[in-house]
Design a protein around this nucleic acid. Sequence first.
RNA 1: GGCCCGUUGGUCAAGAGGUUAAGACACCGCCCUUUCACGGCGGUAUCGCGAGUUCGAUUCUCGCACGGGUCACCA
Length: 488
Amino acid sequence: MTFQGVRTRFAPSPTGYMHVGNLRTALYAYLLAKKNNGTFILRIEDTDQERYVEGAVDIIYNTLRQTGLLWDEGPDIGGPVGPYIQSQRMGMFKDYALQLVEKGAAYYCFCDKERLEEVRVVQQASGISPHYDGHCRNLTPEEIKEKLDAGVPYVIRQKVPQEGTTTFHDEVFGDITVENSTLDDQILIKADGMPTYNFANVVDDHTMGITHVIRGNEYLSSTPKYNLLYEAFGWEIPTYIHCSPVMKNATEKLSKRNGDASFQDLIEKGYLTEAVVNYIALLGWSPKGEEEIFSLEELVQEFDVSGISKSPAIFDPVKLKAINGEHIRRLPLEKFEEMALPYIRQTCKREDVNTHIIAEVLQPRTELFTDIPEQVDFIDTLPEYDIALYTHKKMKTTSETALDALKILLPVLEEIDDWTLENIHETVFAKIAELQVKNGYMLWPLRVALSGKQFTPGGGIEIAAIIGKSDSLARIKKGIVKLEAALQ
RNA sequence: GGCCCGUUGGUCAAGAGGUUAAGACACCGCCCUUUCACGGCGGUAUCGCGAGUUCGAUUCUCGCACGGGUCACCA
């Protein structure tokens, strides 16, 4: 089978939720493929039945679909090199391992676990780092046949050269060289005939024509052994791109165990899918230019492996939030209104309010959708408030001036027949001009009377338009009563 | 512990021997403004330490410190 162009894969294990680090790896693999008009492949690595979590595969599908990381080949849609579920590929691995045995790059090992344990204990006691001692490395063909015929259980191990060094190249970390003597003769095929992860990975990646391997840098130290395997097979070595982890803080990796930062959690917390994708792209990668707000399509254009950084990046919810706010502000108003409405309705249930204006005033002030309910909680019912709110130094207002302003405003507003934002604005500003007072003289008291809050989305005029004429007048009257009572 | 990797402001980071050491978030101040935001302008703050190479190191080399990863018949 020959392949064309760049082929990358995302190969998750279905062991639970999709955390941010995982998603970022998938993103980079997707971006690299798409940037080069290549192919993005999804392969499910489900060979560990112990850790298998029910429903985890669906989480992977849903997350990738929701974020737009659509795969060109995968378990559900098939492709030329299927199956794409590792547990369904089991037959082939042993044959590949046997090829290696013939070439002298692997060997049968009949050591049982007890012996391996003893060796390990001895090595540790003498301060040597634990590794396979090579006991079965040089068995004669006769010895092997004898044991095989006798049905002695065995594994197949990789025969790593004991001398020399192995060098591999990584696009992010450069050339890395290790002494072969530090490499273990790792098991390729287990006693049950199944491949180990590392072996299955190499064979799968090759048979699937993967050209660029993007993965976490926890695999950096096993990569020399991968290369030795590729070389033994005579296969072309893929380009490696190892990514440093996403951290929770300086010393801890972000993990699902700590409860936070699964993609789904972030969405539930009110983040936009595009903002999350945008932010995690920036965690450990930096674009060439100054711009850092990107859609997925723009990321495809901007992405370049040379921008991936070597050091771990700490996940910063504050920055995520800022980016989320930026994406929200760039939403068309109608789209924002549609998305914000469910949140608005959590605390604002009145049907007679102008939700269009609410959306308009909310959009530039929203960083997180979940912040919305608290912002509009005064609309349904006016909260009890202290008349101290009417006093504002910069506006030069006091309870006395506020009372004056409200009394002037009340009859003026009562006159308005067509209660629109424009009409209210025009009327109030006409009065301000007529009296030659500062805007704040009228508007600060108005806003306080209508909202009973120190901070609100929008000013007095917007709020009046939102809550309607009768309620506006009622709240102003209430304010007047409150102020009069206090000033007695 | 062995081996591998990393270390630029609080965070993400650019920079690749000579720079006023970009930019973003956060923070502070000012402006705009009917509050708060948005927007605009400005500010505080960074090259882990020690040697060496060099006329000159954030940038190259070595050592140290700190952090991470890895050393399974797990993936």
